[in-house]
């Protein structure tokens, strides 16, 4: 790792450290709670709460490195949740007892992969920009959610499932484990496998990738299948615990995921980025939300501050990058 990348990938973690310090100190003066912000249980909870967006953000990272974007993840998230919860009420599933759980998960994850594959296939075969394609599918998939159950929430509570989702292993919650495993696996995929290497190459210079004989289309398709799977996995993990999904759930998730990815330093135009930095971006956002809540700010203020920080970070990033771009003599 060169000094430059170390610096870039370290920036988000430095930002997290600043946040922690700020909220700990500010909390001492402003918080009504007598608990300290850095409380261990509080931090564990923070990781658990960042999991739903985090799992999607990991997928968004590989999509963006590849030079695309996926705006439909929120709708896929909702539809996968509906499929999982509703399928458990089907007569043959109910008859299976707890064996219905893995089957319901399978249905939900398959739904996610199929929806992702549809996006990827259209992007590959038509060459239409992923932004437009997934803008369309975002509306379309959300439409499917409403067609399924109208304005009504879809609910099914299975206590075995709830117990599983609320379990803690080595102190970490189930959702946190899923999130961290996703980070690890996708990090390996992007840094160590052929698919990851080629995804970077395609995002950085598609023409050069074609000229090197890389099969661009299949790589794009695979990435969309992965993000579809991850959006569904995020839903599965979250709704196993809550047991009820509203047709509007998951709205704006695509934007939160993109925010986390961009905060982590991945470039919108593709070719650059890292899964680990996205993990940092996800944690940084969740810290801000929790921290601002801790010192008594309301939700509206939280969104305003996150928005301002995102823009400030990108301006800073631009400044730093431009400095680095001055004439390198070789």
């Amino acid at each position: 790792m060169t000094k430059e990348t170390l610096f870039k990938q370290g920036a988000i973690w430095a930002f997290i450290a600043v946040e922690l310090a700020f909220f700990t100190i500010a909390g001492d003066f402003l918080s009504t709670s007598d608990k300290s912000f850095m409380d261990f249980d509080n931090m564990l909870l923070l990781l658990k709460q960042s999991a739903p967006i985090g799992i999607i953000a990991v997928g968004m990272t590989i999509i963006m490195i590849n030079g695309n974007i996926d705006l439909s993840v929120g709708a896929v998230f909702a539809l996968a949740a509906v499929v999982m919860l509703d399928s458990m009420t089907w007569p043959f599933m109910a008859a299976l007892g707890d064996w219905a759980i893995p089957l319901a998960w399978l249905f939900a994850l398959t739904t996610g992969m199929v929806l992702g594959a549809i996006n990827g296939f259209i992007v590959w075969k038509t060459g239409v920009d992923a932004f437009i394609v997934t803008l369309g599918s975002m509306l379309g998939y959300r439409g499917l959610v409403f067609m399924y159950n109208g304005e009504q929430p879809t609910s099914h509570l299975n206590w075995t499932l709830v117990d599983f989702a609320e379990a803690q292993f080595l102190g970490l919650h189930t959702a946190t484990w899923f999130f961290l495993v996703c980070v690890l696996v996708l990090w390996l995929v992007m840094t160590r496998t052929v698919h990851g290497r080629n995804a970077y190459a395609i995002g950085n210079n598609r023409e050069a990738a074609v000229n090197a004989g890389i099969k661009v289309g299949p790589h794009i398709l695979l990435n969309f299948v992965i993000i579809g799977f991850l959006a569904a996995l995020s839903a599965v993990v979250f709704y196993s615990e809550s047991g009820s999904v509203n047709p509007n759930d998951g709205m704006l998730y695509e934007l939160w995921a993109i925010t986390a990815v961009v905060l982590g330093g991945t470039k919108l135009m593709g070719g650059y980025g890292s899964i680990i930095s996205t993990l940092g971006g996800v944690i940084a956002i969740q810290l801000l939300r929790k921290g601002l809540g801790h010192i008594g700010a309301d939700t509206e203020t939280v969104n305003l501050v996150i928005g301002l920080i995102l823009i400030a970070v990108l301006i800073l990033d631009r400044q730093l990058n431009q400095k680095g771009k001055q004439e390198l003599r070789t």
Binding site: N204, N205, N211, A212, I214, G271
Partner: peptide
């Protein structure tokens, strides 16, 4: 524009067509 993936390192560019 057509030959190199400028953001990648020397080695990765060199092995691009056969990394598979």
């Amino acid at each position: 524009g057509q030959g190199l993936v400028l953001g990648m390192n020397c080695r990765d560019n060199m092995t691009l067509p056969q990394v598979g």
